[in-house]
Design a protein around this nucleic acid. Sequence first.
DNA 1: CTGTTAGCGCCTTCAG
DNA 2: CTGAAGGCGCTAACAG
Lengths: 373, 373
Amino acid sequence: MKRQTIRDVAAAAGVSTATVSRTLAPDKTGRVSEDTRRLVFSVVESLGYRTNHAARSLKTRSTRTIAIVAPELANDFFMDLAEGMEGELDAHGYTLLIASSANSGEEEKKRLSVLADRMVDGMVVIPAGARGAHLKALAGRGVPVVLVDRLVEGVDLDAVLSDNEAGAFELTRALLADGYRRIAFVGGDITISTARERLSGFGRALAEGGIRPEPDWIRLGGMGVEDGYRGMDAILKFRRRPEALVAVNLLVHLGMERRLLEQNQRFWEKEAMVIAGFDETVYTPFLPACRYTAAQDAVGMGKQAVQRLLERIALKKNAAGPEAAEETIGGQIIRLPVKIIRHHSESFLKSRSLSRNFSFGKAASDSGWKSGP
Amino acid sequence: MKRQTIRDVAAAAGVSTATVSRTLAPDKTGRVSEDTRRLVFSVVESLGYRTNHAARSLKTRSTRTIAIVAPELANDFFMDLAEGMEGELDAHGYTLLIASSANSGEEEKKRLSVLADRMVDGMVVIPAGARGAHLKALAGRGVPVVLVDRLVEGVDLDAVLSDNEAGAFELTRALLADGYRRIAFVGGDITISTARERLSGFGRALAEGGIRPEPDWIRLGGMGVEDGYRGMDAILKFRRRPEALVAVNLLVHLGMERRLLEQNQRFWEKEAMVIAGFDETVYTPFLPACRYTAAQDAVGMGKQAVQRLLERIALKKNAAGPEAAEETIGGQIIRLPVKIIRHHSESFLKSRSLSRNFSFGKAASDSGWKSGP
DNA sequence: CTGTTAGCGCCTTCAG
DNA sequence: CTGAAGGCGCTAACAG
């Protein structure tokens, strides 16, 4: 049985192809009488007609496809983001294309260009580098772009971010409230907006607590596991050590925990160090030193990003004038709050007094943001 | 500046559109002289021409796009798989579409159909359910499909799987070699091929070690965190308990560890229980009871799946005859070995004698399969 | 090796 | 509200 076309449907229904087309248009524009509508649908059904999206795209210059480009795919935050996006897109009849920029600005540029050629209707980008000329160029070419997670210098595109400053602030304040006074900050590539904002929140909390930051305890560097490992290593070598540490992100946090694991475990019992970091996952309850996490709403960010994007796409279609391009580039920034979650930390090594914190599904699933275990 | 077409290029280069088309064809079929090739490319460059994929697809009935459908996106195994696929696809000029079946066979059916309508050239599916009539139907419709991770009853499609039986066998044997004799198996939905295979490997190792399996210690049930939690809970209630446990997968393993965390930690020291499970991630070194993991090569599976798929696609194009469909459905099964990784287990709570096992990057990054921290 | 030509399937004015 | 007709940009014969 050959693949049916709109003509076959038209013939079988005794109407014109135009009518069929109008009936099947995804953006319910041209109106069709209720009777013919039903007729067409029934014929479509019985013939097993499926619209040919390539042909439609050729005509409409729209693919109902949007792309997400991230520095790497194998990453918790990113996958939650994708999950959020997919859900939202699905509801609007869009499909999600996915690509990795392999943590390289160059690669990102290439992938973006390939995707633009595929005529995606829009793109969500987690920027890989600090430079963003190509992003601006893309937007100039008329492809709606929304940034997620990070801002890029000199590019005023729409962006969906966590409230990093507030997150780091709350995290640090929670440590202060627990009585910790000697607090370090580990990791952070200062060219990345996320790191700058978090460091700034950390500083504000200390200041508000009347504590002078100790320069030795601010171990900037990078955003990877190794950076956390090295930062912790450096800190352990000091005679005077902090009692608590704020990790700039999950990877750094992991590196720090790794380094701590190598230390004789007795160390914790005698001289406990606790960590507060970003991102809550199913695994964070198992990180021995983890006391607080600031859970980002990655799924929500994905939804928001898609909503912004679809908005832009609609705008662009309606405004065909020359001011359209201008309209398409404005940079609206959306900040989503993070949620502070308390963890067991070293206490589980001493008693089970806090064991409620792990009772099944508590920490991870009650965050309300992940579907949970 | 309007978007250039192949005609503009042809005109500017003083050749026909057919020549330009042949020069730009992705599958280097029609040959073109080296001179004209260079000429065309230079004009393409200077005009900033970009091929219109919608038009090409309309003609060729191929989108150079393949899709991956998984039960959920936020999942370590899946992310690595996608990463492997993306890398391999990129090298062949393909793009990756991604969709979640939300752990539902019904939903899977819908997504598959939508994607087929988008004319993807092929699909990689991690089946959500035990039934697969729609998968067979898809393949019948001429869409190449490769299964990953699980087999589906009565559907003989190509599949890329881990060697689950051998993995569970090795895992169990490692425990036996360490001197453990009382070994349990937790989790496993017997309708899922993966679970059956792993349970079978477990049984074989026990048999080979001359050990009679204890029925109480085989806690089948499901494949989620809760199932692991409940399985462990049941086991802790027995007067006679196992010394070691094999977890059917990572989620179950996590649930088990969770349950153990709730137990007073002294429990481990006096009466240690160790766990062997599937999947190695950056986090497994932090699971207190984890002694061995069988690391699946998810990235490699992604690559293999894509290779199979591209092979099928090529086959289909060349064989236009009626036997083509037949050819397209055969079910070749590829098994990738897993790698057993030893972890610290409870020892880190007692001494640092095994601390080398965590030395930075050892367990996770020396697996050679992940890019590592 | 290159040019000519006829659509691929759908959308979208423009009339009716 | 519905029909007729002209492409969208590219490729695949078929000639030359």
